[in-house]
């Protein structure tokens, strides 16, 4: 397996205060990596720095064999990084269909520019088809989460960044989202980097985990080698 994402000595800062310190992380193609840790340790910042929506202040980032350290976010999206951020960030005044259509922008420059949202997204989230004409800002949290995942998938990414996909969503919808993510992993063979505090979900879904503390990665391992209990102290306060 060749590496899809290679991060070396990555750092990022908000003004004078550094929030990421020399992060090294490698994701193999098809791997599902969970990023765990307490609130405020830099997990979300790391995802944003990979996406390019936060500046890299040190280190390097290679994606698909290309140096992307200085590339702006839209270039990384077009190269194949899809992002489902915390808080979902659907475009509130656009309809569900229009939100999905914005996701097609990531296809630019890949020789398959499409104006139509592929059917498989509605197969994955049938609810989105039913509410396609509604403004996204009025949807429930679970619907917005499905929309945000669908929008990322419309760009046919090879790496999917997910920031707390189960946060603040009612349990029966969590199951649906989990089933959809399993489909993305198994049927689409996508590489996934997921930030998640809900360890039971991580242990069902991921191959590997890495734990962060104070802006550094302090521990990495294979899910199969450990139990959720072994790492619970890294997440709990």
């Amino acid at each position: 397996m060749s590496a899809l994402l290679e991060i070396a000595g990555l750092s990022s800062a908000y003004g004078q205060s550094r929030v990421l310190w020399d992060v090294d992380l490698t994701l193999a193609r098809g791997q599902v990596m969970a990023l765990i840790g307490r609130n405020g340790v830099g997990k979300t910042t790391l995802l944003h720095t990979i996406m390019g929506t936060r500046p890299v202040t040190g280190g390097t980032l290679h994606f698909d064999g290309r140096d992307m350290t200085a590339m702006p976010a839209h270039g990384r999206a077009r190269a194949g990084i899809g992002f489902v951020p915390q808080g979902r960030h659907v475009f509130p005044q656009l309809t569900v269909m229009e939100n999905l259509e914005t996701g097609l922008s990531a296809l630019a420059g890949r020789g398959k520019r499409s104006a139509k949202v592929p059917q498989h997204i509605f197969d994955l989230f049938p609810k989105l088809w039913d509410i396609r004409g509604r403004a996204a800002g009025f949807l429930s949290g679970g619907e917005q989460q499905q929309l945000a995942i669908g929008r990322a998938l419309a760009g046919e990414p090879s790496l999917l960044l997910l920031d707390e996909p189960t946060e603040g969503i009612q349990p029966n919808v969590v199951q649906q989202i989990e089933a959809a993510l399993v489909h993305v992993r198994d049927e689409l063979g996508m590489t996934v980097l997921v930030v998640e505090q809900y360890l039971d979900f991580v242990w069902r879904f991921a191959d590997r985990y890495c734990a962060m503390q104070n802006g550094r990665i302090i521990r990495q391992g294979a899910i199969a080698d450990e139990t959720a209990k072994d790492v619970a102290h890294l997440v709990q306060i």
Partner: peptide, 11 residues
């Protein structure tokens, strides 16, 4: 509506 997210979707 959301500049950060727009760039992350490839715009």
């Amino acid at each position: 509506q959301d500049r950060m997210m727009a760039s992350a979707t490839g715009i």
